[in-house]
Design a protein around this nucleic acid. Structure first.
Lengths: 386, 386
DNA sequence: ATAAATAATGTAATGGTTTTCATACACCAG
DNA sequence: CTGGTGTATGAAAACCATTACATTATTTAT
């Protein structure tokens, strides 16, 4: 298509000048007018020309034409949104097949103002604990015609902020959020979203959104109790970091309460703080053993630390579980592979994910939640380490 | 907003009838008219009501009004797509802030006919091997303003088919595909897509799309060579399943060639087929040992099988690596946790992901690839198991 | 001061779909 | 067979942003 710009170039003047000539709006030298008029003629420029699309996506319009019906009818067939004669339906589906038409979801979503997209914000998919959750989320989401946009944050506030903005721009229908910490900044971040949000794997009292979780306190209590029943008396505990006011703290509390309820003295020397890494479990138990205190069992607030502890214990020549039993928390896949296999609290990761998305879908539909804080069952899987 | 349909429902007639009443276009029974009029009154229906959006999304139009400029100018500010006076820019950004405006990405993408969305099809995110890749993909994608739609297939053809269709509908700009197998059906599936595709972790000769991978043959060769150099002479191999004509086969070939090049006899009794699971590694080595053949080393085609083998070996009272050394392939996280830690081929998972997305972005931009099959470096990480 | 260029901004078409309102046709009861 | 209605369909207005093209302001050069 010829544009004013083309004419301008041909005539060797600016587009503004061409415009002036066309509209007689301002004075123009006769020579200039001459040049411009010539260019217009040469190029056959025509103000009223209609532009035609370059891109050749097959659209609902093409289908409509092919089937000899209106776009509306095609839409009705596609969405089953109204009764359509059998014949018409046939024609339409055939046209769709013939043209290999696939409806543009973006256009649909723009019109419908829903995107069938769920944001999934996670600190680290590499970690199988989260991997299991993601899988639960994705499976069930897709069964409900939603897709998942995955965003890995590494737990960094700046990245989380960006992620949330991206999700806002994309107008996701909802968000499943998992963070490392839940401080005021995160809460501000989330509260600024106008789509529903569900938090997985956090204690309910920290945060003001629906959560899906297990009862960390009770699980730790039960595990400790189990150890006591098995005859262990001197049970060490490797906890989470000082700052962790959430799951880690709950687990610690469960441990202490179980001791108390069994009339066992809580001993500060038997408790150390870790940071959920393998190393910290290793060092944690080392701290205790180096004081020449030898517990008969160690309960770590997560599996990584338990495995780290096992390593040190074995290095010191103790045998597991004969000298020192070890128990963990989470049931990450590696617990099955270590020697001896680790007794641990089984978190239902896949179900956590599924329940999270179920809850989110309810919120999206505007349904009321019976319970804002869903607590799933855990299991204690006894293996050879105790 | 009240629509004709609402009135029709209230009055218990069809919309057509309501229309007739409204326009006096055709005859209508007095009673019907009565009913309809009543309904109209009750619902306060007003033909001329300007329909206003129910959804009250803040749009670029609002920003334009607020800032006293045209929508085009707002767009220019947002996208930095043309020069705008400092003052105008100020006004616009201020309006954006004030209204807390966030541009609707779907509308943008519809117009631009690109979605900044990448499909990521994967057999199992739960598996840390894939988890690492996903992370590499997502990180780099986001740095380039792309988002990732994650689709977990469990390797099932039916699900893969659905996934691909979803991605087509969503008009993703590209796809990163990982599958368990690559048969004709998958190839058909992929070839039916009109966006660029990159395959991660597959041998180039199987498939006709750009791939990112390591050299499985060479890696297995090097590992075998390393074992031989360490003095092992009787090296067993636990391979992939019979059907696996890809990575597993390459690894086997590398193993055999290394033997040959070192003038070691290849011995069928020292080779078993597994299926990449822990159990199959356990059984595999059992098969060999039960024949009273005792190798001095075992090389498994992946880590899971290696760990399974370790387990059986230890159970039989052999010590690792003194009696039998063990080596694996992949470097999944658990290799660091087993006792002794496993010597293995390190696949650069994160880089595989990153390179995959890099390649895909090139394709999306329409750039030529220097190399259609990118081969990344691997490492051999020697630990205590050899 | 005038004519032209350049910079800044506006207008309106466009992207592909859904959905509301409107209507042609077919059916049914009297 | 005809008046009254429902059913199947069509036309056109949304949805929100981008962008091609046009135009108005502001410089620059003569």
């Amino acid at each position: 298509m010829t544009t004013i710009a083309d004419v301008a170039e041909r005539a060797g003047v600016s587009t503004a000048t061409v415009s002036r000539v066309l509209n007689n709006s301002e004075k123009v030298t006769p020579q200039t007018k001459e040049k411009v008029d010539l260019a217009i003629e040469e190029l056959g420029y025509n103000l009223k020309q209609v532009k035609q699309s370059e891109k050749n996506e097959i659209t609902i319009r093409d289908v409509a034409t092919e089937a000899g019906v209106s776009e509306a009818t095609v839409s009705r067939v596609i969405n089953n949104s109204a009764r359509v004669t059998y014949q018409t339906k046939e024609k339409v589906t055939q046209a769709i097949d013939e043209l290999n038409y696939s409806p543009n979801a973006n256009a649909r979503h723009l019109r419908r103002s829903e995107t069938k997209l769920i944001g999934l914000v996670i600190p680290d998919i590499w970690n199988p604990f989260f991997g299991g959750i993601v899988r639960g989320v994705e499976d069930l989401a897709r069964n409900n015609d939603y897709n998942v946009v995955l965003l890995n944050t590494s737990g960094l506030l700046a990245r989380e902020r960006k992620c949330i903005n991206v999700l806002k721009d994309r107008r996701v229908d909802g968000l499943i959020y998992m963070g490392k910490t839940y401080d005021q900044q995160r809460i501000d971040l989330l509260s600024n979203c106008d789509f529903p949000i569900v938090i997985i794997s956090r204690e309910e009292n920290e945060i003001d959104y629906p959560t899906v979780n297990i009862d960390n306190y009770q699980a730790a209590y039960d595990m400790t109790n189990y150890l006591i029943e098995e005859g262990y008396q001197k049970i060490a505990f490797i906890g989470g970091p000082e700052e962790d006011k959430t799951a880690g703290l709950k687990r610690e509390k469960g441990y202490r309460q179980a001791l108390a309820d069994n009339e066992l003295q809580f001993d500060f020397d038997l408790m150390v703080k870790g940071d959920f890494t393998l190393q910290s479990g290793y060092q944690g138990i080392a701290e205790i053993l180096k004081q020449n205190i030898v517990p008969d069992a160690v309960f770590a607030a997560n599996d990584e630390m338990a495995v780290g502890a096992m390593k040190y214990i074995r290095e010191q020549g103790y045998s597991i579980p004969e000298d020192i039993a070890v128990a963990g928390f989470d049931n990450i896949s590696l617990v099955d592979y270590v020697e001896p296999r680790l007794t641990t609290v089984v978190q239902p990761v896949y179900e956590l994910g599924q329940t999270g998305i179920k809850t989110l879908l309810k919120l999206i539909k505007g349904e009321e939640l019976e319970d804002n804080n869903i607590v799933l069952d855990y299991d204690i899987e006894v293996r050879e380490s105790t």
